[in-house]
Simulated assay, not measured.
Amino acid sequence: MKAQVKWLGEELFLGTSASGHTMVLDANGGNLAPSPLENVLISLGGCSSVDVVSILQKTRQQVDECYVEITGTRVDSVPKLFKDIHLHFVVTGKDIAEKHVERAVSLSADKYCSVALMLAEKVNITHDFEIRNKD
């Protein structure tokens, strides 16, 4: 896997993946685009969400919507690394079984999500979920 990040000027950078997709990063606290660390949170949420939805679909859960709210807390010293990240999954659908959501979230965190497993060496990652059943 390869990627390239190119400086565009001032504090903007353009990231390009090997597959040709691009994204702008803003080193100035995310004023014009996500900052690199905001992108870490988004990548973690994306990676975990892919796992959770896939696992729930395999268990034949009728998922209509799934999103994750991610909160990161950073240390006060430089470099300002993440010390804690919390993922709160919200799964909406019909007759969603709590045991399946709990299992999907746990499997993602502990076994499948590459981003979470890389970060877990240095960051305390926690997660929870809520289910919103549609009638």
Rank of each mutant, 00 (worst) to 15 (best):
C66Y: 05
V68Y: 01
F82G: 02
C66P: 00
E65L: 10
Q57C: 00
D76G: 08
T59W: 07
L81V: 09
V68W: 06
T73A: 11
S77I: 02
V63K: 02
V63C: 09
G72P: 03
D76P: 06
Q62G: 03
V68T: 07
G72K: 05
L81G: 02
Q61S: 13
E69H: 11
E65S: 12
S54V: 15
D64M: 06
L81K: 07
S54Y: 15
V75T: 10
Q62E: 12
Q57E: 15
G72C: 10
V78Q: 03
S77H: 11
F82C: 07
K58Y: 09
C66L: 13
C66M: 07
V68N: 00
L56H: 07
V75E: 09
L56V: 06
V75S: 05
T71E: 13
V75I: 05
Q61Y: 13
E65R: 13
C66N: 06
G72H: 02
T59G: 10
F82Y: 15
L56D: 03
V78W: 01
V78G: 07
Q61A: 12
V63M: 10
I55Q: 13
D76I: 01
S54D: 15
C66I: 01
V53Q: 07
L56I: 11
Y67F: 15
V63Q: 04
V63L: 01
R60M: 14
V78C: 05
T73L: 13
R74N: 08
E69F: 11
V63I: 14
V78Y: 02
Q57Y: 07
V68A: 07
L81D: 08
C66Q: 02
D64R: 10
G72R: 08
G72S: 09
D64T: 08
L81S: 10
I70C: 00
T73N: 10
V75M: 09
L81F: 12
G72T: 06
V68L: 04
D76E: 10
T59F: 00
L81T: 14
T73Q: 14
L81R: 11
Y67V: 01
T71K: 13
S77Y: 05
Q62H: 12
D76R: 00
D76C: 02
V53K: 03
P79Q: 06
S77R: 05
T71N: 10
F82M: 06
P79K: 05
V78R: 01
P79A: 08
K80M: 09
K58S: 11
I70M: 05
Q57P: 06
Q57W: 07
T71Y: 05
R74V: 08
K80A: 05
R74G: 04
Q61M: 15
R60Q: 15
C66A: 13
D64W: 03
I55N: 12
I70N: 05
F82A: 02
L81Q: 12
K80D: 04
V78D: 00
T71S: 12
D64Y: 00
L56Y: 05
Q62A: 14
V75P: 01
T59D: 07
D76M: 00
Y67G: 03
L56F: 06
P79E: 00
